[in-house]
Design a protein around this nucleic acid. Structure first.
Lengths: 190, 190
DNA sequence: GTCTATAGAAGGATAGAC
DNA sequence: GTCTATCCTTCTATAGAC
């Protein structure tokens, strides 16, 4: 079995994704992680805020690696972009519209309430944008335009998650994916 | 002064937008609404869930009217689309990155925890999509494509809100707005 | 209909034995 | 480092006086 600290982090990430930050209780966390309550404060003396910040960074990094591997599985940047959205749609459907972005819910919740956590979510988004920018630049898109495409990709993905989780469908991911792929194509052609 | 029931609804909408559903306490609500605690359960016997559902519908409707009036202020659908994003960016900045979409935070929070509320958010999004679809169709876009554009507009707006609130900037709204306007232009030309 | 008081559960956090 | 017991606050919700 994984060490206690890791189990707590993983369990929290899963709970955040479904119930958000304020919606996840620490008692719920230790129950899901099969850990005694005290060990939570042993490993995270900063309490819920510290745990939250570490989870945001950890989950953000893992999700980035996952999405990038899906992107890189495409033959080119256009196909890679399309694959990210279709892959996300599959996961969303398979988890009964529960597992979407591990960061977005927390990001909206803490944006005006906890600046430490807000900064953590901002760093994750910036890292995602950087990763995508590099890929588009490598594909031949001029630097400035590459960053715009990257922001567009992340924003379209996040926005589609909001709509599709609420409406329990994958229409938004499909539409947003097609639009993002078209934008990438245009940037490569122009 | 507005009647108690309205004051409660308006105060709750404002609190939801900033702190979300789970992050907003009912005591906080009655304090902000200048109402005694008991009157909350007099007017909303269904408790927090009923209050939440009514607020989602009410705020969703008001926001739709607001956005549509901004859209209609444009000379055509392309300019209208662009105006929606630039207007949103202004409001976001003016409120210190607090007042974005009144629905999105709640939508993500309740998507997997409360089906009544989830349905309320879904109805609001569908209404927004319908409103935008009509406008694009009236501008000459074929029906099926008009709905896709509408979904794209809403998703891009929501996604940009997530990024910009987290990063405390308006870059995503700017990029997403330009992309949405371009997509509308292409649909009108094609 | 208005308002106060309080119940009962759950929240985050801490102390201290082992 | 592990684990239990407990503190204090806050939460939603209810009861009942006026």
């Amino acid at each position: 079995m994984a060490p206690t600290r890791e189990r707590i982090l993983d369990a929290t990430a899963e709970l955040f994704r479904r119930y958000g930050y304020t919606g996840t209780g620490l008692k719920q966390v230790v129950a899901a992680a099969n850990a005694p309550f005290g060990s939570l404060y042993h490993h995270f003396p900063g309490g819920k805020q510290q745990l939250g910040a570490e989870v945001v960074h950890r989950a953000g990094h893992m999700y980035q690696k996952l999405v990038e591997s899906v992107f890189d599985s495409g033959a080119d940047a256009v196909e890679g972009t399309a694959n990210v959205f279709s892959g996300a749609a599959e996961v969303l459907k398979a988890t009964d519209y529960a597992d979407a972005c591990p960061i977005a819910t927390v990001a909206l919740e803490v944006a005006s309430t906890d600046d430490t956590l807000r900064q953590a979510t901002a760093e994750v988004f910036e890292s995602w944008i950087q990763g995508a920018t590099t890929r588009f630049a490598d594909a031949g898109v001029p630097e400035a335009r590459a960053r715009e495409l990257a922001i567009l990709l992340v924003a379209a993905l996040e926005g589609a998650f909001v709509l599709d989780r609420a409406m329990r469908g994958t229409e938004a991911l499909r539409v947003a994916g097609a639009a993002a792929a078209t934008a990438v194509e245009a940037a490569l052609a122009g």
